[in-house]
Structure formats: structure tokens, C-alpha cells
């Protein structure tokens, strides 16, 4: 039994119940979501583990990891602030929001704060166009939306998250 299989034994059982018995491959994406949430990225060993669990090749699992933007194959900040600056949000100032937030954090879009806590990225439309500026945070809690944001509010959130880490 590989480590991933052991760690997620219960979840895997539940997942397999969702799909036809001979279609275990369908469980690839949900499994990758669990790993992504818990480790912040999906390494080669995890790819091999998942492949073994669902009975496909590591190459096939890697294809899935590579295709979807919410899976990452390299580690970044613990919390990924993913700011939508797609057309509708940009029409409501998302570009400026992104620029100012990055400036306040002293990083460029795509970069991570020196403490390794926050990565700021620009992403495509998140279906919250009426509540721009907005972003989602991808981290150990999964994905959470933050709408109608100000730079100050976002900075406050980064501090809260960092504080939580210190306590933990």
C-alpha cells in the first residue's frame, strides 16, 4: 500500500463509490484535490501513488496535473491569492487592485512573499464578476472566495493567515 492510499483510505473508498466499479480513473481529480489541499502541490511520488490507486500510469496522472490550473507541480506560498483580472473584473479595477496588493507585499504577480506564506497570481474569471475586485485563496482549507475587496482588507487577511500559522 502506498502512503497516499493509506492516508486517504476512507476518502478513496467514498470516491470509488461515486463512479462505476470499472471506472476508477474518475477518482483521479478528486484525489489530486486532496493532495493539493494538504501539501500545496503534487509531487512525483504522489503522482505515482495516485496512478497505482486508480490503476493507470503515472504519465496519465501527470497529464491531468499538467492540464488543470488548480493543480501545481511545484511548491509555492502556503496560501495562493488568486486575483481575477479577467475582462469583467478588470472593468471594475482589478488590474489596479492586483498591482497595489503586489506592491504592498513587495512582490510581482506570480511571486511569493519571502516568508513563503503568500503567493499572488492573476487568474481567469472566477464567476464573481459583479463583486470585483475579488480573489480566491487556495490553501490548506481548500478554496475560499473573497469578494468586494479592498487592498487593505486583503492585506489584513494575509496577516491573519500568517498569524494563524504562527499559532499553529
Amino acid at each position: 500500500m502506498n502512503q497516499t492510499a493509506t492516508k486517504y483510505a476512507r476518502e478513496i473508498e467514498d470516491l470509488f463509490a461515486k463512479y462505476p466499479a470499472d471506472r476508477k480513473q474518475s477518482a483521479v481529480m478528486p484525489l489530486l484535490h486532496l493532495i493539493q489541499r494538504d501539501f500545496g502541490f503534487i509531487n512525483k511520488q504522489a503522482v505515482r501513488d495516485v496512478a497505482e490507486i486508480v490503476g493507470i500510469t503515472p504519465t496519465e496522472v501527470a497529464s491531468v496535473v499538467g492540464f488543470y490550473t488548480l493543480y501545481h507541480d511545484t511548491p509555492q506560498g502556503k496560501y495562493r491569492f488568486q486575483i481575477c483580472n479577467d475582462l469583467p473584473c478588470a472593468l471594475r479595477g482589478a488590474d489596479q487592485f492586483l498591482a497595489e496588493l503586489c506592491k504592498s507585499l513587495g512582490i510581482q504577480p506570480g511571486e511569493t512573499t519571502p516568508d513563503g506564506m503568500i503567493t499572488v497570481e492573476a487568474v481567469m474569471c472566477l464567476a464573481a464578476c459583479d463583486k470585483a475586485p475579488m480573489f480566491q485563496v487556495q490553501g490548506p482549507q481548500g478554496i475560499t472566495y473573497h469578494e468586494n475587496q479592498t487592498v487593505e482588507g486583503a492585506l489584513q487577511l494575509t496577516k491573519e493567515l500568517a498569524g494563524k500559522e504562527v499559532k499553529a
Binding site: 484535490h33 488543470y68 490550473t69 488548480l70 493543480y71 487568474v123
Partner: peptide, 10 residues
């Protein structure tokens, strides 16, 4: 009925 999550792909 079951849910299935995508992972970022329009």
C-alpha cells in the same frame, strides 16, 4: 446524484 469537481479549465 454525485458531484465532481473540475480543477481550473474553461
Amino acid at each position: 446524484i454525485y458531484t465532481h469537481l473540475g480543477a481550473g479549465a474553461y
